[in-house]
Simulated scan of single mutants.
Amino acid sequence: MTKPSSFSFRLSKLRVRHLALLEIIAESGSLRQAANTLSVTQPAVTAMLQELEALLGARLVERDQQGARLTLAGNAVRERLCLVLNALHGVEATFLTTPPRPHLRIGALSFAMLELVPKVLATLRKDRPDITFEFIEGTVEEMISGVLTGDFDCALGRLDSQINTLQDSDIEFKILCNVPLRIACAENNPISKRRNVTLEELQQEPWVLLPQGTGSRRTFEQAFAQRGLLPPFPTVESMSFVSNFHLVATTNLLTISTATAVEEYCRYGIIAPVDIQWPVSLAPLMLFARKNTMELESVQAFYQCIEAHTSTPS
């Protein structure tokens, strides 16, 4: 039998109570506040910290009159311990049902929840009724953060410039499909009746757009720039594409969103499409997860099902 290394032996002495300690200290900036959060005394928190520092052989927290803050080593350890703690939360979710069932925590962009995810779940409910799901909608940045910290087992999102910073991480990417864009307006807006609308015409229209820095805003401006046109500045900026659709429905504003979202809300009779094929697409939709998590059987089942739906025309 191979004798465990000294460091591995010390790691084996870690307890669950150690896992959240550094995260709580980092957020509160105080051992006293950490004690309140953990419902223990401050001496007990100090003892826990000393145990953790002794086990890892490094100083993890600096204390002064301003409070407590993590050292460089403390921040590095905190990141890894958060992954372990979130993995345990995943185990906890598995045992919330009787008998225990696989439970997936999935981050997703809102547009993916409109059509793609419902189709995938309809299939999986028949093929894999044992798997339970928890979907958390958010921004691309929130998807990335959730995967890195282990809050999400996997995520459905578009990675544009962010993918360059993640190439050397342990995140695995699965490209699913392109994300075309469409322009929308109110049903009674005269532009909805025009055919072969041009960018020059759209340049003169009032707009409600997502804020600067978002993928759709960059793609919107890129289309005009490629044509040598100055992109129109929006009358309204709003982070919610749903809110934008409702603003469009009651005003003369136009907006841009994913083709899936526009087509879905057109079926509801809330908005109408504008007859122009947008010349620039968003970054492709991807499923991404940490490499060890991507190997989970339940994640693979979800990926294979979503890949089948995105590779087959609707």
Rank of each mutant, 00 (worst) to 15 (best):
D127Y: 14
L176P: 03
N164W: 13
I163V: 15
L114Y: 14
G150A: 08
R194V: 11
L81W: 09
W207A: 03
P118A: 10
G213F: 07
C185S: 09
P118L: 07
F135W: 03
D160N: 15
D160G: 09
V197W: 00
Q162C: 13
S169G: 06
N189C: 07
L209C: 02
T132M: 09
R158Y: 15
P99M: 00
V140S: 11
L85P: 02
T165R: 10
E141L: 12
R101T: 05
Q167C: 15
N188K: 14
N188G: 10
V208R: 02
C154P: 04
D168L: 11
D153C: 10
E142D: 11
C185N: 08
E205I: 09
R182T: 14
A184K: 13
V197R: 05
S145W: 15
I183K: 12
A186W: 11
G157R: 09
P99A: 04
A93H: 07
P118I: 04
T98P: 07
V120I: 05
P129E: 00
S161E: 09
S161D: 10
A108V: 02
E115V: 08
L124F: 00
E115G: 08
L85S: 11
T94D: 13
C154W: 00
L121T: 07
F152M: 06
M113L: 04
R105V: 00
L209V: 07
L124S: 05
E142S: 14
H89P: 08
N178S: 14
D160A: 12
I144N: 06
V179H: 13
S192P: 06
A155E: 05
E187P: 12
P129C: 00
T149H: 10
L81H: 04
A87R: 15
L85R: 15
P180G: 12
G138R: 00
E187K: 15
V117S: 00
T97C: 01
C185V: 10
E187A: 13
L81D: 01
T139F: 04
E200L: 13
A87T: 11
A108F: 05
N178M: 14
I183P: 06
I144R: 01
E141V: 08
G90R: 03
D168C: 08
I106H: 02
V140T: 11
G107V: 07
R194P: 08
T165Q: 15
P211A: 02
G150I: 01
C82F: 12
G138W: 01
N164E: 12
V208E: 02
L81C: 04
T97Q: 07
K126Q: 15
E201F: 08
Q203E: 09
R128S: 10
M143A: 13
P118W: 06
H103I: 04
L156T: 04
G213N: 07
A108N: 03
H103N: 05
G213Q: 10
E141Y: 11
T165V: 14
A184Y: 13
G107Y: 07
L124E: 05
Q212H: 15
P100Y: 09
Q162F: 11
